[in-house]
């Protein structure tokens, strides 16, 4: 099942990348990043079957980073929403000059 797992992981990662490139809603963008992290976790777990439990430790670390990223990222989104009343990335153009 290793090849199938890696294939599924790659497909899910691709869907996540396509989501990041096609959506403008900041929250959905964040969820696409979570999907990519999940896809990578799947390949870690699949390879841990082959190379020992270190892969599963990596998954735990990735989950921790994902939780931290979600907390800080969503706080930033809330903060932007308070200023601009929107989460659409095309409307947030302060750094575009």
């Amino acid at each position: 099942m290793l090849a199938e797992s890696l294939l599924l992981s790659a497909v899910l990662f691709t869907i996540g990348v396509v989501g990041v490139l096609t959506r403008r809603n900041a929250i959905i963008l964040f969820m696409c990043v979570e999907l990519m992290l999940n896809a990578v976790n799947l390949s870690f777990v699949a390879l841990s079957k082959l190379y020992g439990a270190t892969g599963q430790v990596f998954v735990i670390m990735v989950m921790t980073v994902a939780a931290a990223e979600a907390a800080v990222g969503l706080a930033i989104i809330i903060s932007i929403f308070r200023h601009r009343q929107t989460v659409h990335l095309d409307d947030i153009t302060l750094l575009k000059g």
Binding site: A68, V72, L74
Partner: peptide
């Protein structure tokens, strides 16, 4: 992350 989220939120 907790401190950052509290400050930002």
């Amino acid at each position: 992350a907790i401190a950052g989220a509290v400050v930002l939120g």
